[in-house]
Design a protein around this nucleic acid. Sequence first.
DNA 1: TTTTTACATGAGCAAATGCTCATGTAAAAA
DNA 2: TTTTTACATGAGCATTTGCTCATGTAAAAA
Lengths: 193, 193
Amino acid sequence: MKKSVKRERFLAVVLGLIHKKGFKATTVRDMAQELNCEVSNVYNYIDSKQSLLEEYLFDVQNKFLIAIDAILDSRYSPDEKLRHVISSYIQITLKHPYEQALLVNEWRNLEEPRLQEFVERRISYESKLQHIIRNGIGHGQFKVQDEELTAQTILATLRWLHNKHLDSKSISNPMEIEKQLMDFIFTGISRRV
Amino acid sequence: MKKSVKRERFLAVVLGLIHKKGFKATTVRDMAQELNCEVSNVYNYIDSKQSLLEEYLFDVQNKFLIAIDAILDSRYSPDEKLRHVISSYIQITLKHPYEQALLVNEWRNLEEPRLQEFVERRISYESKLQHIIRNGIGHGQFKVQDEELTAQTILATLRWLHNKHLDSKSISNPMEIEKQLMDFIFTGISRRV
DNA sequence: TTTTTACATGAGCAAATGCTCATGTAAAAA
DNA sequence: TTTTTACATGAGCATTTGCTCATGTAAAAA
């Protein structure tokens, strides 16, 4: 749909509502109330509640896919590739925290056939990450054994980040967050003895 | 509410439904259909849809709180305490994957005042974990700086586990999973040089 | 045997929910 | 200036949803 200042404000308000209450629990009447307008006016901004979800979900997902594809195409070592993937993940999350929250929390509310499409694309992303890890193991850079478990664990480590930016008011330094998460993933929490 | 064989089956079916579609999206009619019975019969098993959610959520949350309290009371070192917390987390998750999925995905659907109560108890759990980490830093066992970020990251690392048990059919060895996650959290993925 | 308990049905209500339509106005584009 | 576009209203319709009630039956407890 088209863009404008008012539409931007509308979308910001709605994203906030959905993040707080959940997609299903956020009714069109809730949106109208938050915007101080009538229900019917909401439909000047969206085609349907479902399409709103779809647009956002595939939009953010695309950002992640584009990022990992570019990195996969590069000639960095697996270790460096992984660092770039993590970095891009954090950048996208901190730049679009509400959209990322939507991605993590609300994808189940997609309807077929878009749901299947979404899951396939997510699996595609995960496979690419696993590929990097497998190469890293081959190069002797990573000491892990199970690349699937490792990929899932790394993603889980990153997936909560949007909350940091949203729930707490502590707007921390993105560079500092990136460094700490990178340290955690690569060397853990134990002091070396 | 009372227990029985039939009720056990009922709850299992409903938990599966909610895990697949989400709490809000799972209607009482969905439950009835899955059970091949009439809608009204569902209310022989539950008082209301809300109370079902509440009971499960506080029930699982309690398991986690009881576990961390026992560990906090012990005289293990911070490093060992943290290992026990992680271990207990994994045990509970693998023993009750559906309930854990509910805890992670559906707590937003609680209504006040139970929602606030739930969040307070979760914060209590997180604070206890932070306390262990702070002590570990003091003892020179952990090299991290920010105990809040570290606590959140560790929890995130564990929070996805229920999917491993539910979505994929690969029923892996719990001991092996625990070892790999423990390694990840304490020493990361990089091979030491 | 009687009585209580657990499980089951079907009709149906009140509220909530997503969405449409006909209509109107203020601002921007032509 | 005219016309199109973006934003707004209010009435209201068709479904969906959570839940109740009156009633019934099979099994377990008394």
